[in-house]
């Protein structure tokens, strides 16, 4: 049963490609690192190559780059305002990294970088640290006004403030867990149904017919997974924009 072909967890295993050990710490180049590098390289190549022509009527790649840019810029502008545009490089990089990493995961035998919580947690921490540091840099202690909603009776202000702080701290957690859980659950579901196909079809002619059902399910799930890949990249981006909005306009 724990056969590599049908084991749904096997695909998330970290394998060392190049063993590196620095001062007792294991900093080996793993398959996860390899696909992160590939993600960045492919994103950069598509964008640089695509925009190199600078045609008035864009070609396929240029059009793709322009759509991605205008989509992210529009999202950022509408949720964080004109002042948020200074964060466009960060938000655009995050969007492209998550999107390309998610789509890479859909290629058979490829490793899904975003299905590991350490990766998504780092991305979320990057966002929340940017928000916090920029918020304090821009507004100083006024940034703490974020945690004290206006129009609250003085008696319950401490309580509300603690709840707001917990709510703020829970953001990176929910941001990272959402992306990671979606990718992990999606890939496990795909693998489980694909495993049914393998197991059933080895049971002779009757099982072969029975295997058609999970096969149809796998086809449908693959489509759904592509949707989830796009959707989660979008959700990650829009929440980043909303948190950046907090850093730019912390209450009144």
């Amino acid at each position: 049963m724990a056969d590599v072909r049908t084991d749904p967890i096997h695909q998330f295993g970290i394998k060392h490609i190049l063993d590196i050990n620095v001062g007792g710490y294991d900093v080996s180049f793993t398959n996860s690192a390899l696909f992160m590098v590939l993600t960045v390289a492919v994103t950069a190549l598509i964008l640089i190559w695509g925009t190199s022509a600078r045609a008035v009527v864009p070609g396929r790649l240029q059009s793709m780059g322009e759509i991605a840019y205008e989509f992210v810029a529009g999202t950022l502008r509408s949720s964080a305002g004109e002042g948020g545009m200074r964060f466009l490089p960060l938000v655009f990089s995050l969007f492209m990294f998550v999107l390309v990493a998610n789509l890479f995961g859909m290629v058979p035998y490829f490793f899904t970088v975003t299905s590991h919580i350490i990766v998504t947690a780092c991305l979320a921490l990057l966002v929340i640290l940017t928000v916090t540091i920029y918020g304090f840099y821009k507004h100083g202690t006024h940034f703490l006004g974020l945690f004290v909603p206006s129009g609250v009776p003085a008696a319950i202000v401490p309580l509300v403030t603690i709840i707001e702080v917990i709510s703020f701290l829970s953001r990176p957690l929910s941001l990272s867990v959402r992306l990671f859980a979606n990718m992990l659950a999606g890939h496990i579901t795909l693998k489980v149904f694909a495993g049914f196909v393998v197991t059933l079809s080895s049971l002779g002619a009757f099982g072969f017919l029975g295997a058609l059902l999970p096969l149809a399910m796998v086809v449908a799930l693959t489509g759904l997974e592509f949707l989830v890949a796009f959707l989660q990249a979008y959700v990650f981006t829009i929440l980043t924009c909303m948190y950046l909005n907090d850093a730019l306009h912390p209450g009144h």
Partner: peptide, 30 residues
């Protein structure tokens, strides 16, 4: 308190509680 914060998160996510900063136009809509 975490329970309360979680509930606040959910209410905020569905838009039942208005965003803290109505100044930023369309973010509520989002």
């Amino acid at each position: 308190l975490g329970f309360a914060a979680g509930t606040l998160n959910v209410l905020r996510a569905v838009g039942a509680v208005t965003e803290r900063f109505p100044s930023s136009g369309q973010s509520e809509d989002k």
